[in-house]
């Protein structure tokens, strides 16, 4: 696994700094870039801003300083943040955050509301196949196991074909064989789709298994 190189920047983060109000700085002048199709593991001790970095890239927070550029478009500056719904960034949360009142199929289809109905159904089917959850369309999140919920969350995030996928500790709620299986599936899936992704994880083995490159925050 190599450190993030200054290749063709698909995602470029420049001098990114963040703090809440007048509190301590969570990020202090972070700069890196990610080439298209690469998977980057973001690691580092807890409390050093890994989740904050994802939230900034997702547009859920406004940077205190610095810029975020994706595919040539400036997504975030301290003065202007393009809203999350228009950034083309997908995210899988640590606790999956599935819509409890919608079925698996409806969850996955949520981001496809702009597409015509037949296309929606086809896309949902395709994603269910990719995450190996065929047959579970009508189930509800609380009826699924942790690993299955994780797959639904992944399928849901990938459905609208985002330019960039963010994953926040996707494997930390699982262990053992299930986890290894999920890591393998995620890795295969992301590469198959040519997805550019940032994966936050505190486990260096997981990072090595799923990613091409590493970004360490708070490293000396």
């Amino acid at each position: 696994m190599t450190d993030v190189a200054a290749g063709e920047a698909f995602l470029a983060v420049n001098d990114l700094a963040f703090r809440y109000g007048k509190g301590p700085w969570v990020l202090e002048g972070l700069s890196f870039s990610v080439a298209k199709g690469r998977i980057v593991a973001v690691s580092g001790p807890s409390g050093r801003g890994k989740t904050t970095l994802l939230r900034l890239i997702a547009g859920l927070e406004r940077p205190t300083r610095g810029t975020i550029v994706l595919d040539g478009l400036v997504l975030s500056t301290p003065r202007r943040v393009i809203p999350p719904e228009r950034r083309g960034v997908g995210m899988v949360f640590q606790d999956y955050a599935l819509f409890p009142h919608l079925s698996v199929a409806e969850n996955i289809a949520f981001g496809l509301f702009r597409r015509p109905r037949p296309e929606r159904a086809a896309r949902v089917r395709e994603l269910l196949r990719l995450v190996r959850l065929e047959g579970k369309e009508e189930r509800y999140p609380h009826e699924l196991s942790g690993g299955e919920q994780q797959r639904v969350a992944l399928a849901r995030a990938l459905a609208p074909a985002p330019k960039l996928l963010l994953m926040d500790e996707p494997f930390s709620n699982l262990d053992g064989a299930l986890k290894a299986e999920l890591i393998a599936d995620v890795s295969r899936l992301l590469r198959e789709l040519g997805m550019t992704a940032l994966v936050v994880t505190h486990d260096s083995d997981d990072a090595a298994a799923v990613a091409d490159e590493a970004l360490r925050l708070g490293a000396p």
Partner: peptide
Amino acid sequence: QDGAVIESARLLGAG
């Protein structure tokens, strides 16, 4: 309620 659910909706394109 879980804030992450609301944020997920927005990241999926819902205003």
